[in-house]
């Protein structure tokens, strides 16, 4: 239980309440046009192919790289997660992230988590284009 909630319930003298945080299911999320725009934006999800866009490649190279020390320190955020939230060994890095993500938000949706966020977003985009959503 979050500390602020625990404090509030204690102040109210409502110790009989049970408390649980519920994460919204992604399928229940309203699909705002902005979300669709972001999904399709190459600055968010997809890098332009280097051979097709030399200018983009130059820009990308200009972006500073992390230091070697940082590389040793940080393996792309992954070590931050508690071991109990780590997903199965066969998962891809993307699905690992997603499983851990759902687990971190209470584990309620861990089994519902799609295997690949890219695939999920592409599927949603296709359904939007086809007018199914």
């Amino acid at each position: 239980m979050r500390k602020d909630v625990a404090n509030l319930l204690a102040k109210l003298g409502k110790r009989e309440f049970h408390y649980q945080e519920f994460a919204d299911r992604f399928s229940d999320v309203e699909l705002w046009p902005l979300f669709e725009t972001l999904i399709h934006d190459p600055r968010i999800l997809n890098a332009p192919p280097a051979e097709d866009n030399a200018e983009a490649a130059v820009t990308a190279n200009a972006a500073p790289a992390p230091s070697p020390a940082a590389t040793a320190t940080l393996a792309a955020i992954t070590p931050a997660r508690p071991e109990s939230e780590t997903s199965g060994g066969e998962a891809t890095p993307a699905s690992k992230d997603l499983s851990n993500l759902f687990a971190r938000y209470g584990g309620q949706n861990a089994e519902d988590a799609p295997g690949d966020v890219h695939a999920l977003l592409q599927k949603l985009a296709q359904q939007i284009e086809q007018g199914k959503l």
């Binding site: 919204d24 299911r25 999320v29 309203e30 999904i39 999800l45 992230d97 966020v117």
Partner: peptide
């Protein structure tokens, strides 16, 4: 409403990068 939806969207989009 939008903040709640944005939270769910970012959770899906960013995965483990959303800490």
């Amino acid at each position: 409403r939008f903040a709640r939806n944005a939270h769910s969207f970012l959770r899906e989009l960013l995965g483990g990068k959303l800490i």
